[in-house]
Design a protein around this nucleic acid. Structure first.
Lengths: 231, 231
DNA sequence: CTCAGATCATGACATATATCATACTGATTT
DNA sequence: AAATCAGTATGATATATGTCATGATCTGAG
């Protein structure tokens, strides 16, 4: 996840975006020619919400947090993003502004590709366009789930779900590094950092997890699942 | 909004979906041939969440509510939909299930078009595909806004915003029929029906609105805007 | 007209959750 | 080792909001 080798060409890079597989060699070369690579240090901002959305950004390696800057400076972390992820936000096709911000958590390697180029390829290649539709749909689908989670579950359920999200979707292990602070965990589950601390404490007392400030180990996945589902 | 004339052909129907303007005559005729029209009475279900998403559904006339069925039977109304709206949900491209339910509020006229046909046209017509991407993006964009509203604003702000949504997006007037019950207004703003009643009462006392069970008149739009924005 | 069922309204109360104050811990610097 | 600083932890308290109970009002069916 922390690799940092320069990409020689899109043609031999498998870490960018699955949908690029739908491109012809020529199209892929067009993308490759219009590609700018950049590396971000932890906590650096990759995308700034509401700035002009000129580029589609693809994560090659590393981990980033995708978040919205809300009212009175309160953030809402939507999800984490790793390699093979297109970052742009729906705003690119609505008001040409980024809808969310993205910041590096670990060191992040990313490719920037101008939207003009992307649009050109969308118009030329129906398979790619369909892939784009699928990507948008999947993100929208997840957001629909998230809106339900955030509005209808109580704190315990939301935190349990966040922990399972890390285990299942990011680290694929029940024992993982906690890359977010308590504060950020709160921004992800829409609760105060103090509440995060308290509930993590409760989960520990009930032997559901073992947690340190920078690590989590899920001890009783069944219970955690029940808490996550029952809200 | 309550018209009910049979559509003779997509070719001379302007109430369906703007994106159909990107089609050639032949493509439009293909759509027209694969079109099924139906009329729904108030409260009838047009789309049932998590049932197989076989058709894209377009509202020709009438008003419908789009909502998610959440945990323990609690609904979340996402928005209202009127003519020129594509209803399908991102699930159509993810798990082939409808992501949300849709129910008629007034009498609703709708066209059903099989997704196979839609996909055929998406593959054949890049302009249409782009229109599809724009539609998906706009809906996702609105959902991003909504998730912030629901999670970061207090009840007063959420209700003020809902009222402005009706005035600005649905009825285009500061005086309008209240088509939702207090209960439904609560499902839309994520609060208990009693809280809706109470806050509407407060808004009345402060001469911000005049409300009856089935109507609303905005008296002080400025104040309502401030409440909506300040949360 | 009258009855029944829904919706609306309102007050008393319960509870989830945020906020505030304060202290603790661990890392980094001096 | 002392000092700083950010993150973590915990208790006391405040507040937003939901829940429950009850009555008023409206609406449609017979």
């Amino acid at each position: 996840m922390y690799a940092e080798n320069k990409i020689t060409s899109c043609a031999n890079c498998a870490r960018c975006w699955n949908n690029f597989r739908n491109l012809t060699e020529e199209e892929l070369e067009l993308i490759n020619k219009n590609r700018y690579e950049a590396t971000f240090k932890p906590s650096e901002i990759i995308i700034k919400q509401s700035s002009p959305a000129s580029n589609a950004i693809f994560i090659i390696s590393g981990l980033a947090k995708v978040y919205m800057e809300g009212y009175s400076g309160k953030n809402l972390i939507l999800n984490l993003a790793e390699h093979s992820t297109l970052l742009a936000g729906p705003g690119a096709h609505v008001n040409a502004r980024y809808t969310y911000s993205v910041a590096a958590i670990t060191q992040v390697q990313a490719c920037f590709i101008n939207f003009d180029t992307i649009r050109k390829v969308i118009s030329a290649n129906p398979g790619f366009a369909s892939g784009f539709i699928e990507d948008l749909s999947e993100k929208s689908f997840r957001l629909h789930q998230k809106i339900l989670n955030l509005t209808q579950k109580k704190m315990h359920g939301r935190l349990a779900e966040a922990l399972l999200y890390f285990a299942d979707n990011i680290f694929r292990s029940d024992e993982f590094e906690m890359v977010l602070s308590r504060q950020e965990l709160g921004e992800m589950t829409n609760m105060a950092k103090e509440s995060v601390v308290r509930i993590i404490g409760e989960f520990e007392n009930e032997n559901i997890i073992h947690a340190t400030p920078r690590s989590v180990k899920i001890l009783d996945r069944e219970k955690l699942l029940v808490i996550s589902e029952k809200g």
